[in-house]
Design a protein around this nucleic acid. Structure first.
Lengths: 217, 217
DNA sequence: ACCTGAACACCGTTCAAGT
DNA sequence: ACCTGAACACCGTTCAAGT
């Protein structure tokens, strides 16, 4: 458990020996981190305002300084998750710069699904509920678009090379995303049972018909 | 709101003019129906033991006669959902008895996705959480297998006809299911925005690369 | 500006009873 | 057998205050 940084406690407070629960760091950041740590081995439902603030060491009311409500905190957690996902996907593409478009798509699918399985609760927060129902979290939408752009670039380059069929990219990206997300999501609820060690070959098999269908004939 | 069947109220109770909240019908069935009705226009989270029992007109403790806990009620709701899904899928296949295997798969995908969109909260209960973590609901697993069997039969017949590649059915079924579930699930959280009226052509486009990839070359 | 404390209206679940 | 009622330990959120 990360200790509160003993930074700028008001002198009065320190003198009185009280206010030990004041945070005075980046409380917003601390709350998000605590929430993510809280679910690192567990369920999304474990994120409650009260538990998270307890972990950070502040009154549960303090959360409302930085988040309008529980949904806002969850949106911030989701946002951070999408950022991590984008990083993971980017790394996967970078590791396959010289591969054929088909292999690159497979690598992308593997990275995507591995992320979901390795961050189960986090992934479920990212995709389990409509968090942005009223359009309150535009930044969240931005980060999602980054992930989208990554997939889109792969499809685009495959089409450009003449390897993939020249269907509208939008369709193909959604199709690929549905496939990867569907597999990940079914694996998370154990409708598909996969051993983590065998994930890569399994994921490749699942993606295979789609990738084959992309080939120009 | 369905009224309690005025059946076998104990005479004493009737005489005293109390016990009006006794149910004395098929309370189990009534609770499941009330739960499903409760979410027919709304979120899965609206199902609470207290609200459901309120709707049926019994004390919230009465639920525990028929369900071990909230999860057990949700499992029953999910079970009923899978039954309805199987019916919808079966109807779709029956409507396309004479079509080519590719068209039949497309029809199946459309029916699947339409079900998810038309029963959003119900679908999210079916696929949103691991309900059967401890293997407590074997019947639930049975119904899921029925859905599986339907998809499997389609793939099998396509392979048998020599239309689909002879890959292991397990792989192909999971791949198809991932695609359909992924699309449905992304549509539910609005990561994919589809107008309900345009669902069928849209779904067909999403499934197209997969179906193309199934073709023997 | 930032945090607290008490209060409100909800939960699921347990225990001990009523008919 | 079946249902109730009070109690417990949780929630998210609101209001009014403290420093």
């Amino acid at each position: 458990m990360p200790r509160r940084p003993a930074r700028t406690l008001p002198d009065q407070a320190r003198a009185k020996g009280r206010r030990e629960t004041y945070h005075h760091g980046d409380l917003q950041r601390a709350l998000i981190s605590a929430a993510i740590e809280l679910i690192s081995q567990g369920n999304p439902e474990q994120i409650t305002l009260r538990e998270v603030s307890r972990r950070v060491g502040v009154n549960h009311r303090a959360v409302y300084r930085h988040f309008a409500d529980l949904t806002a905190l969850l949106a911030a957690v989701a946002e951070e998750g999408y950022r991590q996902l984008v990083d993971a996907l980017r790394e996967a593409v970078l590791g396959h710069r010289v591969s054929a478009p088909q292999r690159r798509l497979e690598a992308l699918a593997c990275a995507y699904i591995a992320f979901a399985l390795d961050h189960q609760a986090h992934y479920r927060i990212m995709f389990g509920r409509r968090l942005n129902e009223d359009g309150r979290f535009p930044v969240l939408e931005e980060v999602v678009k980054e992930a989208w752009a990554l997939l889109d670039a792969e499809i685009a380059s495959g089409i450009e090379r003449g390897t993939f069929v020249a269907r509208p990219r939008r369709e193909l990206v959604f199709s690929f995303w549905s496939l990867a997300h569907g597999f990940a999501s079914l694996a998370l609820v154990r409708r598909i049972r996969v051993k983590r060690a065998l994930l890569d070959p399994y994921a490749r098999q699942i993606v295979a018909p789609f990738v084959a269908g992309l080939r120009v004939r």
